[in-house]
Simulated assay, not measured.
Amino acid sequence: MKRTHLPLNALRVFDAAARHLSFTRAADELAVTPAAVGQQIRALEDHLGVVLFRRTSKGLELTPEGAAGLDPLREGFLRFEESVQAMQVGQSSDRYTIASPREFYSVWLAARLAAFQAGRPGIQYILAPGEETDFTEANLDCAVRLIDAPGDLEGVRLTPAKRVTVAAPGARPETRDAWIDWPGAALPEGISPSIRAANPGQALSSVLAGMGRTILPLALAEAALADGRLEALAGPQDARRAYWLVAPLPQWRQQKVRALVEFLTA
Rank of each mutant, 00 (worst) to 15 (best):
A18G: 04
G49K: 15
A143M: 01
I41F: 12
F77G: 08
L78Y: 00
E189L: 12
A203I: 07
E75V: 08
A221N: 07
A266I: 00
S106E: 13
R258D: 05
E189N: 09
A242S: 09
L245D: 04
A18I: 09
G90W: 10
F53W: 15
F263D: 02
Q39C: 10
R213L: 08
V144N: 05
V32S: 09
L187R: 01
A111I: 04
T165P: 00
E81S: 11
L140P: 01
R196L: 06
A223S: 13
P169F: 05
P169I: 01
A242E: 01
R102I: 03
A232E: 11
R25A: 14
T214Y: 07
F116K: 04
G49V: 14
A234D: 15
T214E: 07
A27K: 05
R112H: 12
G201R: 05
W252L: 10
G38V: 09
A171C: 03
A118L: 12
P150V: 00
A68I: 08
V107M: 06
F116Q: 05
E103S: 13
R163F: 01
L264A: 01
I191G: 02
L216I: 09
L230I: 10
P121C: 07
R258A: 13
L113D: 03
G151T: 01
D181M: 00
D141V: 06
A242M: 03
T63D: 15
W182Y: 11
A259N: 08
F135R: 03
P183Y: 04
V32H: 08
L11A: 04
L78Q: 11
P193G: 04
W108R: 13
I123V: 15
E81Q: 11
D152K: 09
A99M: 05
A239N: 02
S106W: 13
L153T: 00
D46P: 07
A111G: 10
A43M: 12
R145H: 05
G66M: 10
G212R: 02
I126T: 13
G59P: 12
W179V: 02
E75T: 11
G38Y: 08
T214M: 07
L153Q: 11
I215M: 08
V13S: 09
A35I: 13
A221T: 05
F116W: 14
